[in-house]
Design a protein around this nucleic acid. Structure first.
Ligand SMILES: [Mn+2]
Ligand SMILES: [Mn+2]
Ligand SMILES: [Mn+2]
Ligand SMILES: [Mn+2]
Lengths: 217, 217
DNA sequence: AATTAAAATTAGTCTTATCTAATTTTAATT
DNA sequence: AATTAAAATTAGATAAGACTAATTTTAATT
């Protein structure tokens, strides 16, 4: 139905649309995909013809309802496969994203729904990202960052924003995962470093950047 | 590492090499892939340069040890994914092949081995085809056809040779699967039709073509 | 051996998806 | 308003992988 490239463009546009209410420009898409802006312009033309997106110089790129449906299904498959890879095949959370990037493009009627059922209808993927339901609805998305909470607060890790290997492996080393309890003791005035305890353990200091990439509940 | 097309060529060459000791010609590959012979010649050049195959006008196309390894891994993944789709996701045996054609190209270190372990190290796929082991070795492959046995013999279905939807759905309707017991009562002289009973049930007549596509043990 | 048919190869075309370089349009800044 | 910088677009090139049509090679048959 859609090529691998088309699907990746739609997914990228979807992800950009989730972020802020900034308009989605060719350059933004180019950056997000690591492609040249000229290539993006070509693909915008193609996807517009297929009525998967609309492009208005003022409003930027928008997914049509049709395009949105496609994009959400890809994200759904991506996150479900991530759950599979972690829970059933025993991969670690820093290894699954790249494999899911390939698996998300497997297309077969009812595949996502069967996988969903097999996995017990998980609501969040291993990084805490919400898994779109069969009807396209998203579970509650967490948005409060660890860097935003007040000193003294105790909270739980709900999701990670950065899913790079570097960050995930660091978290693994610190014994931090989804659900881990974190207490914030102090914010260093000089550079906003955070003094925290992990699951009630010893005090540890992490950077502001670190705190920006942990979402809590 | 290898493109989707390259992998499909290697797999096709491997399957042809398994069949008989006929030499593997460009035309044979073209037919098996539904491609034009000219395209095959192009790819033969490419795969030869990559040292995945050797081509000699007299000996035909041969996989190098390197190419063989790649081909076997693809077949391994294909058949393991078929087991997964049937046993874990509940697809029927006529639906899984096409999905596995996509899944077999997913590449990730240790993926096949993890899947193998998760599935309990199955030896045969849902169509009775042997699943290559991690070391590349194949379990015993069945080769005796139902059409070859003598009247009066009782045997069990070990594998199907034709894996088309048409055949598999027909078998589903007849309640025949891997392991089903079949007794041969009579071979009709006129057209070699077979009179059989399925799991000890009533006598049924099936065509010679049918008998050619069931492998028994 | 000559003829014919089939198989293999070459030459050239097409599509998809990418790129670089050049140009035009839009936005920001003096 | 003029200038400058950034963004968007166009033009043209490239690579992979397929195709058709033409040609050459090989095999089969008279
Ligand atoms: Mn991911
Ligand atoms: Mn994720
Ligand atoms: Mn198959
Ligand atoms: Mn099979």
């Amino acid at each position: 139905m859609h090529t691998l490239s088309e699907e990746n463009y739609l997914k990228s546009i979807y992800r950009l649309s989730q972020k802020a209410d900034e308009k989605i420009t060719p350059t933004a898409i180019a950056e997000s995909l690591g492609n040249n802006a000229a290539s993006v312009v070509d693909m915008i033309r193609k996807l517009t013809e297929k009525q998967l997106i609309e492009y208005d110089k003022k409003k930027g790129v928008r997914l049509t309802p049709q395009g949105l449906k496609v994009a959400i299904l890809i994200v759904r498959k991506h996150r479900l496969w991530e759950v599979f890879l972690l829970e059933k095949l025993g991969y670690h959370w820093d290894e699954i994203h790249d494999i899911a990037e390939e698996l998300e493009h497997i297309s077969a009627p009812t595949l996502a729904d069967r996988l969903d059922k097999f996995l017990g209808f998980p609501e969040y993927d291993p990084h805490g990202d919400p898994i779109p339901k069969a009807n396209g609805k998203l579970p509650k998305t967490y948005s409060v960052k660890l860097a935003d909470v007040k000193t003294g607060t105790s909270c739980r890790v709900a999701a990670v924003r950065d899913t790079s290997s570097a960050f995930l492996q660091y978290l693994l080393k610190l014994n931090i995962g989804i659900g881990t309890q974190i207490q914030l003791f102090e914010i260093i005035t000089f550079d906003q470093s955070l003094v925290i305890s992990i699951d009630g353990g010893e005090k540890t200091t992490v950077s502001q950047k670190f705190g920006e990439n942990i979402l809590i509940s």
